Simulated assay, not measured.
Amino acid sequence: MNILTFDIEEWFHILDNKSTKTEVDWGQYESRIHKNMDRIFKILEDNDVDATFFCLGWVAKKYPEVIKKIDELGYEIGTHSNLHQLAYEMTQKEYEEDLKQSIYELEDIIGKKIISYRAPGFSIKKDNLWAFESLHKFGIKNDCSIFPTNRAHGGISNFAISEPCILVHNGVSLKEFPINTTNILGKKTIFSGGGYFRLFPYSLIKSKSKQSQYIMTYFHPRDFDKNQPLIDDLSIFRKFKSYYGLNNCEKKLRNWLNDFNFIDLKQADGLIDWSKANIIEIS
């Protein structure tokens, strides 16, 4: 089961960086969302494949036509938060206000219930597991926020499995679709989205895909935008992570979609026999 998803945000929505943190900061950068979304739509059309789009409430409010087009083309829409902030930097009250606003903005445009979510930067970790209670409170049924290894902005390295499961926390349960992992040089590693996908050669991605029964992807519009401006105050390491591999990422994705079958999250949910799924209690 290979699931195709995109996190819909602007090219400058880079986490944990001073000049790209707030709405005020974002005003200094040009918008590239429309051309980048058109590129994604063309990739999907050419390959006749469905995808789930995790969208910011901020994008919905500022560019409602983008959300309308995603919906009109028949793609599933979930939320990626409202203001693209790290979940573990918020109080639970702040997190819930952000989540509620994002759901409102999206539902107001498409007239459909939002039931799927992915945290910015996969920023749910051991310190803020209360986020799962909040997701349940606001009607989220499918979560894609678990990153089952270490990462700069979160990650739960001891999460038991990297396949769809029932996640239980403090008496609430969600269907969890974690990021898939693989073993590279003895280390648990990701290959199916973002900077990891841009970094690895396609030959390795293809090989690891053949070995994987479950793949959860995560791409951003900026991953395919080789002409995006440089954000000057990023460290050398962050510049490498943010800009490496932009030139051939679209080609690699097109090859991947040609070589393997992908479905959206809604289709995957319907194909899984949840009565037989692993139940993972996390506390």
Rank of each mutant, 00 (worst) to 15 (best):
G57M: 08
Y88D: 14
I103H: 12
E96I: 08
D71Q: 08
V66P: 01
T91E: 09
L86I: 11
G57R: 05
H80T: 10
L99E: 06
T79P: 03
S81E: 10
Q92R: 15
D98Y: 15
Y75D: 12
N82M: 09
L86F: 14
M90V: 04
K62Q: 04
E72V: 04
K100P: 04
A60Q: 01
E96K: 04
K69T: 15
K62C: 00
I77E: 14
G78I: 11
A60M: 09
H80N: 10
Q101M: 11
V59R: 00
I67F: 07
L83C: 04
Y88T: 12
D71N: 15
T79V: 10
I77H: 13
T79D: 02
E89L: 14
A60H: 10
V59K: 01
K69D: 13
Y95H: 12
D98S: 08
I67Q: 00
V59I: 15
H80G: 02
E76C: 06
Q101F: 07
T91D: 07
A60K: 03
G78L: 04
A87W: 14
L73Y: 14
E94P: 00
Q92W: 03
E65R: 01
D71E: 08
N82R: 03
Y88P: 05
Y63G: 00
I77V: 12
T91F: 11
L56N: 06
Y88K: 03
E89M: 03
T91C: 06
S81C: 13
E97Y: 11
V59W: 09
I67G: 06
N82P: 03
D71S: 14
E97N: 12
L73V: 03
I70D: 08
G57A: 04
K61L: 04
D98M: 02
V66R: 00
L73M: 14
K93E: 14
K93H: 09
I103K: 10
V59T: 14
E72P: 00
S81W: 04
H84P: 05
L73F: 14
N82E: 14
T79H: 07
G78D: 12
Y95G: 11
D71I: 05
K61G: 00
E96S: 15
M90E: 09
Q85F: 09
L56E: 10
V59L: 10
T91R: 07
L99F: 08
S102D: 13
L73C: 04
Q85A: 09
L83I: 06
E65G: 02
G78R: 07
I67D: 01
K68N: 13
M90A: 01
D71W: 13
T91I: 05
D98V: 05
Q85S: 11
P64V: 10
V59E: 09
E89P: 01
K69P: 00
V66F: 00
E89D: 13
Y75R: 05
D71H: 15
E72D: 14
S81P: 08
L73T: 01
Y95C: 01
E97L: 05
V59D: 05
A60I: 10
Y63K: 02
W58E: 11
